[in-house]
């Protein structure tokens, strides 16, 4: 099992509930905006605490309210690709990419900078500042930064939403490669049915609030 997620969380007026058991590959989380998709990713990443429930990824328990387990965000080793990129504006692309890599213990690292730069086609961007990147370039760097943090799984929050059509196709092809070549469990949030049909092995739907 890649993701076993049973969570409840009240957030303002919204009630977020999810019951999901995914075998492997890419699992999509589909739902209208405001349904709490990003909140689910934040709970899996450890940035938001569920009121109740259990989160298991790749056999490791990250959160279990009944057993009193709540692994800190730093120890969950989530490769989180945010919707808005969130590159560190004061660091060059190279230092953005290496931020998590340098913090990971050497035994956990399974990719290095050259491999990621080649995989994502960003070797020529390493000395640039984030503000000089196009949307597609920034999203590739964000994916690279997540991969270099030695993650055990990836969380992707609408990684295509800020891109124009040609960039979307390019990043979507890239995500397919990550899915097929790296064998990492991926939890992928989207509100686009077509995108999800193409990428996902399983789909979970989060209801409207």
């Amino acid at each position: 099992m890649s993701f076993e997620i049973t969570i409840e969380r009240r957030l303002g007026a919204a009630d977020i509930r999810l019951d999901l058991a995914a075998s492997s590959g890419l699992t999509a989380l589909l739902g209208p905006s405001g349904a709490g998709k990003t909140s689910v990713l934040n709970m899996v990443a450890g940035l938001l605490r569920p009121d109740r429930g259990r989160i298991v990824v790749g056999g490791e328990v990250l959160f279990d309210s009944a057993a009193g387990i709540d692994l800190p965000v730093q120890q969950r080793r989530a490769g989180y690709v945010f919707q808005d990129g969130r590159l560190f504006p004061h660091l060059r692309v190279r230092d953005n990419l290496l931020f998590g890599w340098e913090l990971a213990s050497p035994a956990d690292r399974w990719l290095d900078l050259d491999q990621v730069a080649a995989l994502l086609g960003i070797a020529h961007l390493l000395d640039r500042w984030p503000r000089t990147l196009s949307g597609g370039e920034a999203q590739r760097v964000a994916i690279g930064r997540a991969l270099l943090g030695a993650p055990r799984f990836l969380l992707m929050d609408e990684p295509l939403s800020s891109l124009d059509a040609p960039r979307r196709a390019e990043i979507m092809a890239l995500i397919e490669r990550l899915r097929d070549e790296l064998g990492l469990p991926i939890l992928y949030v989207s509100h686009d049915r077509g995108e999800v049909d193409r990428l996902a092995a399983q789909v979970a739907v989060l209801g409207a609030p």
Binding site: A45, G46, L47, V73, Q74, R76, R77, A78, G79, Y80, F82, D84, R86, F88, P89, F99, G100, L103, A104, R145, A146, G149
Partner: peptide, 18 residues
């Protein structure tokens, strides 16, 4: 300073101090 950048750093393994 956008707190979401700090969250991003923490998902990458950075302690609060770091």
């Amino acid at each position: 300073v956008d707190p979401r950048l700090e969250q991003a750093a923490m998902t990458l393994g950075a302690s609060r101090l770091r």
